[in-house]
Computed example of a mutant assay.
Amino acid sequence: DGSHVHYTDLTPDGRLAVVDLGNDTVSTYDVSAEGKLAPVSILKTKAGLGPRHLAFAPDKKTAYLVGELSSKVSILDYDSTTGAFYLRQTVSTIPADWTEHNGAAAIRVSNDGRFVYVSNRGHNSLAVFEVLDGELKLIQHLTTHGDFPRDFALDPTEKFILVANQNTDNATLYTRDQETGLLACCQKDIPLPEGVCVYFK
């Protein structure tokens, strides 16, 4: 119903990107040496997208924006000259026949930029996308073996993905094929009370 900044991070060139779930915007600010902000650009997404997180690809020119309320992910082109984002494509993170509640949550991009992963809270799944000819193609949906997968991360080798299921107090571990991007569950029901963040040092 109103502004609700859910996520902020620096762009690869040092601007501040602000993702607002409440008013469906991604705003960009220049950051002065004193840390003061000056507005540069605003991308207005489709109403109801509910932007939650933003992740840049390794090329530093492409970003992926996950929409919590819409269960969708968008490809954005980033212009480092102007600090502006431009919409390229939007696709669903859940099957077309899913009618129950879902909220898309975390998003991760592989280091080679070839694969994008999104967690779904409600459908309780991971959606796996391959980047082909500049667009996202869904290649896999698989259960997280728990409820409300709040966060997940690739390990430093990118051979594994660990998912935290907040409501069922467990984590699930997957092996990852680095050529195809596909996942396979190798361990589930790892005790994790109310897991909300996965971070590898």
Rank of each mutant, 00 (worst) to 15 (best):
S32G: 06
T175N: 13
I139P: 01
L183C: 02
R15V: 11
G122P: 00
N102A: 00
E158P: 07
E158I: 09
D177C: 09
L37M: 14
G35E: 02
H101C: 06
Q178I: 15
V5L: 14
D59I: 07
A153H: 14
N165E: 06
H123I: 01
I190C: 13
L183N: 02
E179C: 00
A127D: 03
A104T: 10
R150W: 12
R88N: 02
S125A: 14
Q140L: 04
A63P: 04
L173Y: 08
S92N: 13
R176G: 04
K201E: 06
K46S: 12
L132D: 03
T45C: 09
T93C: 01
W98N: 11
A96V: 06
K46I: 07
L132C: 12
D133Y: 01
C197R: 10
F115R: 01
E100F: 07
G2C: 07
L154E: 09
E68N: 08
C186D: 05
K137G: 01
T157Q: 14
V118N: 01
A164R: 11
V131G: 01
F160Y: 15
F152G: 11
L126S: 12
I42S: 09
R121H: 05
T62P: 02
Y64H: 07
Q166W: 03
S74D: 02
T11Q: 05
L21A: 07
A63M: 06
I75T: 12
G14W: 05
V163P: 05
S92A: 15
D169F: 13
L21S: 09
R88C: 02
P149Y: 09
P58Y: 03
V163T: 05
L138Y: 02
R88G: 02
R108S: 13
V163L: 03
A184Y: 11
F148Q: 02
A171T: 05
G122K: 07
L43T: 12
S32C: 03
R114C: 01
T144W: 09
L21Q: 14
L126F: 10
R88K: 15
P12R: 08
Q187G: 05
R52W: 00
C197A: 11
V19P: 06
Y7I: 10
V31P: 13
P156E: 14
A55M: 15
R176N: 08
D77M: 03
D112Q: 04
N23E: 14
D30Q: 06
N124E: 12
V73D: 02
V91W: 04
E179P: 00
T175A: 15
N111T: 14
I94D: 07
K188Y: 15
I190S: 12
T168S: 15
A184C: 02
N23K: 11
D24L: 07
L65A: 03
L49N: 08
F115L: 01
D30F: 05
S80Y: 10
G50N: 00
Q178Y: 06
I107D: 08
G14C: 08
P193S: 14
P95R: 04
V19N: 05
S70R: 00
S119T: 12
Y86Q: 15
Q166C: 05
F115W: 03
T81R: 14
V31Y: 08
A33Y: 02
R88F: 01
N23A: 01
Y174C: 10
E158M: 10
D24C: 08
N111S: 15
R88Q: 07
T82N: 05
Q89R: 05
I94H: 05
T175K: 15
T82F: 02
A153Y: 08
D20C: 05
V5E: 08
L43V: 09
A96H: 00
T90F: 02
T45N: 08
S74V: 00
E135V: 10
